[in-house]
Design a protein around this nucleic acid. Sequence first.
DNA 1: GGTTGGTGAGCGAGCGCTCAGTCGGACAAG
DNA 2: CTTGTCCGACTGAGCGCTCGCTCACCAACC
Lengths: 220, 220
Amino acid sequence: MSPRARAPKAAPPAAEARDIPTEVKDPGLVTRRRRQIVDAAVRLFIAKGFHKTTTREIAKAAGFSIGTLYEYVVSKEDVLYLVCQAIHQEVEERIRARLPQASHGAMALEAAMEVYFTVCDEMSDHILLIYQETKSLPKEAMRFVLAHEQRLTDLFADLIRRGVEDYSLRPLNHAEIGLLAHDIAVLGHMWTFRRWALSPRLSLADYIGLQKELILGQLR
Amino acid sequence: MSPRARAPKAAPPAAEARDIPTEVKDPGLVTRRRRQIVDAAVRLFIAKGFHKTTTREIAKAAGFSIGTLYEYVVSKEDVLYLVCQAIHQEVEERIRARLPQASHGAMALEAAMEVYFTVCDEMSDHILLIYQETKSLPKEAMRFVLAHEQRLTDLFADLIRRGVEDYSLRPLNHAEIGLLAHDIAVLGHMWTFRRWALSPRLSLADYIGLQKELILGQLR
DNA sequence: GGTTGGTGAGCGAGCGCTCAGTCGGACAAG
DNA sequence: CTTGTCCGACTGAGCGCTCGCTCACCAACC
């Protein structure tokens, strides 16, 4: 992953270990172009997969040439990294934006599941992409993905824990709480990769309702 | 996917729509060689992924040259197809081999979950592979994979239905049974792609126990 | 206003290489 | 000689990435 000779980045010596060479360009332009790249790449990766998409296609779909693409990105793998990062950020933002704070315990958990499952539905193509291409990421970037997944799971674990503390949920030990949180996270993803079997018979609302029943029924 | 000029398969005109040209060779050798190919490919695909594995590597790992590889296979995609087929067959065989028939209702379901989760653990690398590479399969082959997944799910659905009928489980409608069956199937897979978070805190036996509780607690 | 020189975003032909798939021939058995 | 099996050098398409170049823009100077 050699940085381009033309961009000697004389500024901070080694400040940004991760995050693609930040060069000496207009940072506004850089972020705008990167967003264009990510938008184009997401569409293409979803349609054809990472390996079957060429860098030329990405550049074209983003509205410029390969030369320009490589002004803003160090390698094709970096594009995938940016894409994964963007997707996770969007998932997290959508969830946090819609989470009601006011409620407590069981109610809060129920609301969170509702929000989470809805977001999973909205972004199912993206979530599928993450499942399929995470392994193509370099080691370090993969840790980033897993860390995000863990953070999301922790969100559910916290809600359950709070429910236990205020007695709106039955007592649970550490392991049980962790597992239940993972169950919720995965059951959300399940809607994205089992839609082919599920959605003909079940609406999203039905799905959410039944899964809430399954989890919360176990917790009361 | 151009068939080799050297293998004109003059025999039945279009008998085998799927299933690689069966030529006019010793069928014993063909199946033996194909098994070698599949064994080698599984190992390599698990380690490096489909796209990053070369046909030459597969041939070498199988113990012969590329030329020979292409005597028994029509394309690289076909290797992936054979691999997916073999994995599914193995999963199914292992499960059916260990399923006790004698028991009934809730007991049978519980036993089936135990067996299924154990097989998922044994074959977790293979299941992960399926998740990641199914999309690289040609359309028709993909249907095969989904059909297998459906058959496995139906197995659980049948057990639940029988449990409802003999009153060892509470009454459930069609949609609920279907969803629960999918939940079980996916919860089995979950152990394979969340081991990084789960297994430090939970043994397989713990995992099985808690998940059985979750599902069966809901059904009694 | 006109000229000049500097700057850097953008370009795309093409380099270097990888890799799926081919083919002509070697070799052994019948 | 024929047939079945295997070999591996060879081919050519296609890919990621590079780099010499263009050109719009701006500021300085006449």
